[in-house]
C-alpha cells in the first residue's frame, strides 16, 4: 500500500515566475467592475440631466430654457393636480400591496398543503405574472368593455355597467393589478414556507397547538422576512405603476387614476413640458427613495430577528 513511484521533481513548464505588485492585485475587482461602472454612468447621466431639468423652464415651446431655481418645485407642490396625483399613487400602492400580500400569503398557505389540486394548480400560478402588464391591461380592457366585454355578460351586469366610472376606475385597475402580481407574493412566500425547518412545527403539534396558534406564533414570525421582501418589491413597483393602468384608463376618467408616472407622461410627452414632467418624477423618486430606505431597514431587522440574532 505504499506509493511505488514519486511524482518526480517539479519542472516548471509554464511561463517563468514573476511577482505581481500589490496594487495590481487590489485593482482586480475594479477592472472587472469597470464596464458596469461605465454603464452606470451612461444611465446616471440622463438621470442627472432629469434632475437638472427640474431647475429649468424646459419645454418644447421654450426654445432657450433658462434656470428658474425652485419655481418648478414650488409650482408643482402648490398645484392641486399634483397632490391629487400623488395621493392617488400612494393610495393605489398601499391598497395594491395590502390586497396582494393578503391574497398571496393566503394562496401560499393553501398551496403549501400540497393537495393534488394544489400541486396541479401551482404549475400555472405564475402565468399572469409572466405576461407583459400592458398585455394584461389590453386583455382586461377587452373583458371590461360594457357592450362587448365578457365580464358584464358572465356576471349578468347588463350592458351599461361601467367598470371605469369615476368611482370604480381605481378598483378595476386594482383588480387587474392583483390578477398580475398576487402570484409574485404567493411564489415568494411559498418558497419561504417550504424552507422552514420541520421540528418546531412537529413539537408544537405534539403540544396540541391549534392551527391558528401555530400560524401566528410560529410560522408568521419565521416567514415574515419573505413577506417583507415581497412587500418591498410590490410597494416600490406600485408607486411607479404605469403600464396596465395607462392602457386601461390613460389616467382617466378625468384624472381619477392619474398616477405620478402617468402625470409625468402627460406633462412631458403629451404637452411637452419636460421640466414639469421631470419635477413630477423627481418628487416620485424622493418618495421611492425614502420608502426604500425605510423598508430595507425594516427588512434587515426582521431578518436578524428571524435568524435569532436579535430579540
Amino acid at each position: 500500500m505504499t506509493l511505488t513511484a514519486t511524482p518526480g521533481k517539479l519542472e516548471r513548464t509554464g511561463p517563468p515566475v514573476r511577482a505581481v505588485p500589490p496594487w495590481r492585485r487590489k485593482l482586480r475587482p475594479y477592472v472587472l467592475s469597470l464596464p458596469a461602472v461605465f454603464l452606470i454612468v451612461g444611465i446616471l447621466y440622463p438621470f442627472g440631466l432629469g434632475v437638472y431639468y427640474v431647475f429649468l423652464n424646459y419645454a418644447a415651446q421654450v426654445p432657450r430654457p433658462v434656470l428658474i431655481g425652485l419655481a418648478n418645485l414650488t409650482g408643482v407642490l402648490s398645484d392641486a393636480a399634483f397632490w391629487n396625483s400623488a395621493g392617488f399613487t400612494v393610495l393605489y400602492a398601499v391598497l395594491a400591496t395590502v390586497i396582494e400580500t393578503v391574497l398571496g400569503v393566503g394562496i401560499a398557505l393553501l398551496l403549501n398543503r400540497s393537495s393534488l389540486i394544489g400541486r396541479v394548480l401551482e404549475r400555472v400560478l405564475i402565468l399572469p405574472l409572466m405576461i407583459a402588464p400592458v398585455i394584461a391591461g389590453v386583455i382586461w380592457g377587452l373583458m371590461f368593455n360594457p357592450q362587448f366585454g365578457v365580464l358584464n355578460y358572465v356576471l349578468g351586469l347588463g350592458s351599461t355597467f361601467d367598470w371605469f366610472s369615476e368611482s370604480r376606475a381605481m378598483w378595476s385597475a386594482l383588480l387587474v393589478d392583483a390578477w398580475i402580481f398576487t402570484p409574485f407574493v404567493a411564489v415568494l412566500v411559498l418558497a419561504g414556507i417550504r424552507s422552514l425547518p420541520r421540528e418546531p412545527f412537529e413539537a408544537s403539534e405534539v403540544d396540541g397547538a391549534s392551527w391558528f396558534t401555530m400560524f401566528r406564533r410560529l410560522m408568521l414570525p419565521m416567514i415574515w422576512p419573505y413577506i417583507l421582501v415581497a412587500v418591498i418589491f410590490r410597494f416600490m413597483d406600485s408607486l411607479k405603476v404605469f403600464d396596465h393602468v395607462f392602457v386601461l384608463t390613460a389616467g382617466g376618467p378625468g384624472d381619477a387614476t392619474r398616477t405620478l408616472q402617468i402625470g409625468a407622461y402627460q406633462n412631458s410627452i403629451i404637452t411637452f413640458k419636460y421640466s414639469i414632467g421631470s419635477t413630477y418624477m423627481f418628487l416620485l423618486w424622493v418618495i421611492v427613495f425614502l420608502t426604500a430606505r425605510y423598508l430595507v431597514g425594516v427588512l434587515g431587522k426582521a431578518q436578524r430577528r428571524a435568524a435569532g440574532t436579535e430579540a
Binding site: 458596469a36 452606470i40 440622463p46 419636460y274 421631470s278 418624477m281 423618486w285
Partner: peptide, 19 residues
C-alpha cells in the same frame, strides 16, 4: 446603484433620454 435602477421611476430617465 445598479439595484436602484430597478426601482427608479422610468420616466425620470426617459424624458432626458428622449431628448
Amino acid at each position: 446603484t445598479i439595484l436602484s435602477f430597478r426601482f427608479a421611476p422610468e420616466l425620470m430617465v426617459i424624458v432626458p433620454l428622449f431628448i
